[in-house]
Design a protein around this nucleic acid. Structure first.
Length: 266
DNA sequence: ATGGTGGAAGGTCCA
């Protein structure tokens, strides 16, 4: 089972790139974030034509929005309104075999890492808190969390740990919250299970640097975690089971995020 | 200390 997560930054603008990517990467399931459209504007026909006729969308106008598309059946679709703000930032499905797959777009959190003066940062921390509460229950069941979680938790998940300690996405309050969620939910950060702690892993490079590839000031904001019952399946597929499609960041009119892949031996 | 770029919407917000 091949699962890929990708913050697409407008699915309608990039539908041709998505279809090209599907043909090349051949995932069974593709989880998208920042689709930036209503449910009824989602280009379902293009996905169906490409072989992905099972679709779970949680969209909204202009901002946010997530969708999970698959060439295998998706059951028990759930859209939870984290923080009760009406934002479309979550959709969950059950995959064939019974694993529950949660697709998230966590709030970015604005510029100032202070919940007292920055409501967006407070929202981000509340969102992480609610996730931690939700996933503390049933943590021995087969679960997968994917998505743009907008936090780079480890030292080598950013280009410069020291220079980013006060930058939203890598502040201690955020990275602590993420570690708490991972631990409390019984999750395994598959990327770090398969790659040494000192290896740099990035999935996002800012649009603001035209020389993103050579300067390589990236961050790992996009994640794939599994619970213990899926450990064997996630690691049995071998070291290439986890892959970041960095080349896609260099395509014409790219998203600022690269697709991130996990192969599960199920 | 600042600005750099991009998407959607619509004359600005968000990333």
């Amino acid at each position: 089972m091949r699962i890929i997560t990708w913050n697409i930054n407008s699915v309608r603008l990039r539908i041709d790139s998505v279809v090209r990517f599907l043909e090349q990467a051949q995932p069974d399931v593709l989880c998208l974030q920042e689709i930036k459209c209503h449910d009824d504007q989602f280009p379902a026909k293009a996905f169906a034509k490409a072989g992905y006729e099972h679709i779970a969308v949680n969209g909204q106008k202009a901002y946010h929005g997530v969708a999970t598309v698959a060439r295998v059946p998706l059951e028990d679709i759930e859209r939870r309104d984290y923080c009760s703000m009406g934002d479309a930032r979550h959709v969950a499905v059950t995959l064939p075999g019974g694993a529950r797959l949660h697709n998230f777009y966590v709030p970015a959190g604005g510029d100032v890492p202070d919940p007292e003066t920055n409501d967006k940062f407070a929202h981000k921390l509340s969102f992480m808190d609610e996730m931690t509460k939700v996933f503390a229950k049933g943590k021995t069941t087969p679960r997968i969390i994917v998505g743009d979680l907008n936090i780079a938790p480890e030292e080598h998940d950013v280009w410069s740990h020291k220079q980013l300690l006060k930058v939203v996405s890598h502040t201690p309050v955020e990275t602590d919250a993420m570690r708490q969620l991972i631990k409390g939910g019984g999750f395994i950060d598959v990327a770090r299970e398969l790659h040494a702690p000192e290896e740099k892993l990035f999935s996002w490079w800012s649009y603001r640097s035209p020389k993103w590839a050579e300067s390589n000031k990236g961050r790992r904001l996009d994640h794939i975690w599994v619970t213990e019952p899926l450990r064997e399946a996630a690691l049995a597929a071998g070291p290439d089971a986890f892959h970041i499609h960095r080349d896609v960041r260099g395509w014409e009119k790219p998203s600022d995020h690269a697709p991130v892949r996990l192969d599960l031996a199920v």
